[in-house]
């Protein structure tokens, strides 16, 4: 008998995969971004299903609030229309092989010792064990901001 958690997971994951398939088949960029928005909503809801509300909120704020708006601004400069891409079929062997290899690895892995966990002391863990990593991320953020300002303010942009 399937319980409510598993049913929720099945519904959310099927919506997620159908969103990705719609992204693959959409012709217009704005449709792609709308389907990406719904995909990211599904990712946030799957985080709520596994009881990590903080990261679901971070996902909502950062991805749905920030990146989707940035992509919309980026799509607004794309004035040209794209033809249907002529894909050689053997290129699609690459993701097929990756899917096969990862599935074999997932089948071989031993999941029997895993049990569910509720988040505790996440902030303590961030501020004690991972301060150096966050320091590096802060430096990368500053470098990104400076690079963006440099790239967008060059005089010889045509």
């Amino acid at each position: 008998m399937i319980d409510l958690d598993e049913l929720t997971f099945i519904i959310i994951s099927s919506l997620m995969i159908s969103d990705i398939i719609l992204i693959l088949y959409s012709k217009k960029l704005i449709h792609t971004i709308i389907f990406l928005f719904f995909f990211l909503l599904m990712v946030a809801s799957i985080f709520i299903v596994i009881n990590s509300v903080f990261l679901a909120l971070a996902e909502l704020f950062i991805y749905n609030g920030g990146i989707v708006v940035l992509l919309t601004l980026g799509a607004s400069i794309a004035t040209d229309t794209f033809e249907d891409s002529k894909v050689k079929l053997y290129i699609l062997l690459v993701p097929a092989i990756i899917l096969l290899l990862l599935s074999i690895m997932a089948i071989k892995f031993n999941f029997s010792t895993i049990s569910q966990y509720s988040y505790q002391n996440l902030g303590m863990s961030i501020l004690s064990s991972y301060v150096f990593l966050f320091f590096i991320v802060a430096i990368v953020s500053i470098a990104t901001a400076l690079s963006v300002v440099y790239l967008l303010s060059k005089e010889d942009r045509t």
Partner: peptide, 12 residues
């Protein structure tokens, strides 16, 4: 599945 479909999106 999501990873493989992301690679497909980049390729096509």
């Amino acid at each position: 599945i999501i990873f493989s479909l992301g690679i497909v999106n980049i390729l096509i």
